[in-house]
């Protein structure tokens, strides 16, 4: 069959909301786009463990420590679901790790910001996981089956992440003057980077149109960002805190909040590797990988030895 026909039939399936499965024919560019997107997504989950893992030993109570550990463990799980979804497209796990460790692959820029106070654990849960959920819910209906199924699993777990974060901030917002200040400070630092998580404005996001045609993506960056802002602008009132944007104002006509300009320069700088923690994050990943080598080798050797014994018996 001619490639044109295959591509047409592929698009017909997409248009009819039929999911694409690993062994189905798909255009090369579709496969490549998915590998890039899913592996970046997986890397983000894995690197995303670092800023929060940093606070496990410093959590203010045993309860908070247990919660934080559960959340960080979930993020590891999310990374694993996504890596295996990407593997169904023909890239190996080692190749993906290699791309991460050599800096060839990107991960979400948000994780290149430092976590300076305990309140950051709250702000990350509320804003960073909140923004992630906003991105991820429509991905549960993405056109590639394994990706969609991984996202369903992830979304089920994310809600706890966001709620525990908000609750952490809520407790601080009702605490001492110092705790309140810490709460506001964390919100101030995480607000703008969270808005950047939705990616550049639609006008500067050339891949969006094709991704939407293939139904990999269901909503545009700007649509998702607006939804997120509308949601947070209301939620922040419950905390008795403010969002650090003097232009944030309800627009009756648009039925949305207006907001001030986002510093895209900062976004591109962090993306290029010039964020506050890019180096620490990658170093920590490489160190974990390198220092874990003997464990991987030992497990492999043990499995082989046992297999040999089994064959003899």
């Amino acid at each position: 069959m001619a490639v044109v026909n295959l591509e047409e039939r592929f698009q017909e399936k997409i248009d009819a909301e039929v999911k694409i499965e690993p062994k189905d024919w798909m255009p090369d560019a579709y496969r490549k786009t998915l590998i890039r997107q899913i592996s970046q997504h997986a890397h983000s989950e894995i690197v995303g463990m670092l800023p929060e893992g940093n606070w496990i030993t410093r959590a203010p109570s045993l309860k908070r420590k247990a919660i934080l550990m559960a959340k960080v463990q979930d993020e590891a799980g999310h990374g694993l679901y996504l890596y295996s979804a990407a593997e169904t497209l023909g890239i190996s796990r080692d190749e993906m790790y290699d791309q991460l460790h050599t800096g060839k692959a990107k991960y979400s820029s948000i994780f290149n910001y430092p976590t300076l106070t305990w309140a950051d654990m709250g702000a990350i849960g509320w804003l960073v996981d909140g923004a992630a959920i906003m991105n991820q819910v429509p991905l549960c209906r993405t056109s590639y089956g394994p990706y969609a199924r991984a996202m369903v699993r992830i979304c089920k777990e994310e809600s706890f992440h966001q709620r525990q974060g908000f609750e952490t901030l809520l407790v601080l917002s009702r605490g001492s003057a110092e705790q309140k200040a810490m709460c506001q400070d964390a919100i101030n630092r995480w607000w703008w980077p969270s808005l950047m998580m939705f990616g550049p404005p639609d006008a500067e996001s050339p891949n969006t149109i094709q991704s939407m045609k293939w139904k990999i993506k269901r909503l545009s960056n700007d649509e998702l960002r607006q939804k997120f802002i509308d949601m947070c602008a209301e939620q922040v009132k419950v905390l008795g805190m403010t969002l650090p944007d003097p232009d944030l104002k309800w627009n009756e006509e648009r039925q949305h909040y207006d907001f001030g300009p986002i510093n895209w320069n900062e976004f591109y700088e962090v993306l290029k590797g010039n964020g506050p923690c890019n180096k620490q994050r990658l170093d920590a990943r490489r160190k974990a990988w390198d220092e874990g080598k003997w464990v991987r080798d030992a497990a492999e050797a043990f499995a082989q030895k046992r297999e040999a014994v089994r064959k003899v018996a």
Partner: peptide, 26 residues
């Protein structure tokens, strides 16, 4: 506000850049 955390918390060399991958070890 007292700030501490992972911002330059420790400076540990991150091992070598893995130049070549060996999928056989996977």
């Amino acid at each position: 506000i007292k700030r501490y955390g992972d911002y330059g918390d420790r400076e540990v060399p991150g091992g070598e850049m893995p130049g070549q991958t060996n999928n056989k070890s996977e």
